[in-house]
Amino acid sequence: MDLDVDVPRIEPVRSTLDLSGGTLETAEIRLFGLPRGAALLLMDEGGLDTLAPELMNRLAEHGFESLAADLGSLALEDAGSVTAVEELLDVLAERGWSRDQVGVVGYGGGGAVALEAARDLTLGAAVSVSPRGVLDVAEPAVRSPWLGMFGELDEEMPLAAVLDLESRVWRGTEFSRLVVYPGVGAGFYRASASSLDHAASFDSWQRVVEWLNVRVAPRLSPIAERWAERQHIHQAR
């Protein structure tokens, strides 16, 4: 996923977090000024060294701070996954991000965790990109808006399974959408010389950004916060 243009690059800050389920490797990009929102990236093992830095820089271009976590080091069962996400959201909360100001984006195994988080938590938005093990997610009706993206040739997710998942997710209270890219496999989101892969990679990234942009609550400016406070007081009278 190389950038086509030469723009300043931010090196994510790496650290280790002790969560209740174990120790987790993380990377973080913080922004100055008034960031648009925050993104929590859930990556497979090694993802912090390969995919995450590029994704985090791209999110920064759209005004999103980001915290990326390598879930590979944790043996996460269903409930444990969501607990880990909640603990990561707590880290973002220390930076002032409420849950509706956060978009959770999971890749591969992290995609299934993102769906579980969308099922159990009220978030700004959630996205699963080529999720692994997503069919094992029990009762996936979502309470946060969720976007799932799949490759047509992904053997783990035949079209019938995607359609079945779509109807089960739709039972939730919030909006959801599933997208299947034709002629590509599970790695469709990575850059490739193949035209179908390239199209899927480009389109899927556009969808991630748009999904977050129209759903993640913006952080209020200090002036807007004071104005909202005055409105609240005025309405209470």
Partner: peptide, 24 residues
């Protein structure tokens, strides 16, 4: 479509589906 926030593409003012201006 489905969007909690709608942003004017002209100057970037953003509104939620309750009609409130959320950011300028």
């Amino acid at each position: 479509g489905n969007a909690r926030f709608m942003t004017c593409f002209y100057h970037g003012w953003s509104f939620n589906t309750s009609g409130e201006l959320v950011s300028i």
